[in-house]
Design a protein around this nucleic acid. Structure first.
Lengths: 140, 140
DNA sequence: GTGTTTGCAAAGTGTTTGCAATTTA
DNA sequence: TAAATTGCAAACACTTTGCAAACAC
């Protein structure tokens, strides 16, 4: 935890993409960019915000998550059709998705390898490769 | 196309999982299991149904898609948070997802390979591996 | 007949939007 | 003060559900 400079990283992140550091964004950025990798849903983040400081509307949370994603500060991960996750680690990596707990867990780059990527259909190019390894409770 | 025995395959599929071959299910099964691999959304399927024969309610389409999926006749594929695809090919394979056309395209088993699958977290086991290769229009 | 299946319309979910009020630079 | 941002509540898209009528066996 970066207790010694709790504001510098969030501020830098906002400045780096040219967003005004409003109080709502700072609160959100402070939670997201604390130096550790996080996977959050809009609801989870909203809850964290309410827990930590003054109120930020859910609409603003959604807005901010999408803004951050467009600007490259976050990466959206689709695992289920009923909720989106956002990942503060924007580098190339994949995920475990625990079907029982709905938890998203990083798979480190070295722990999986895809070789022989397929040629994309005529006229298209690969923009991204998503890998989700679904896991469940061990049966026995 | 299996024009010669248009009903046998759908009927067999329904029988094989012990579902009553109601007219609605037969209509749906006939569209889905025509011998070719298909990727459909509930809306697409509903549209196909209406186009081909008498009416089946959207609720029943949803119901049937989920029933078929639970019983192993279909596989659900999550590519975007706002719509689910169902794949008539239930064997292990992955997909291209065209971000511009929302089209889902099979990647054949031989065209991609994942080696070194990661060890799942303590107490869990891998239930499935989903790979979606997102593609977009070639830029130049 | 009895249990299953269907269709409708209503309810539900997560998400987005329009707009007036507020805040930032 | 001009432009950006926020919050609210309404609107949204997709999906699910409750229940009475219809159907399959």
């Amino acid at each position: 935890m970066t207790l010694e400079r709790p504001y510098s990283r969030p501020l830098k992140q906002l400045n780096s993409v040219g967003l005004r550091p409003t109080s709502q964004r700072m609160i959100i950025a402070k939670i997201l960019f604390d130096g550790t990798d996080k996977h959050v849903t809009a609801e989870m983040l909203h809850y964290e915000v309410l827990k930590s400081q003054k109120k930020v509307s859910l609409a603003t949370v959604y807005n901010t998550l999408h803004l951050f994603t467009e600007l490259g500060l976050l990466r959206e991960i689709i695992v289920a059709s009923d909720c989106s996750y956002f990942d503060t680690n924007t580098s190339n990596h994949y995920h475990f998705y625990h079907e029982d707990t709905q938890e998203l867990i990083d798979i480190h780059e070295n722990d999986i390898r895809i070789d022989r990527l397929p040629t994309p259909p005529e006229g298209s190019q690969i923009t991204r490769v998503d890998v989700v390894v679904k896991v469940g409770k061990k049966s026995r």
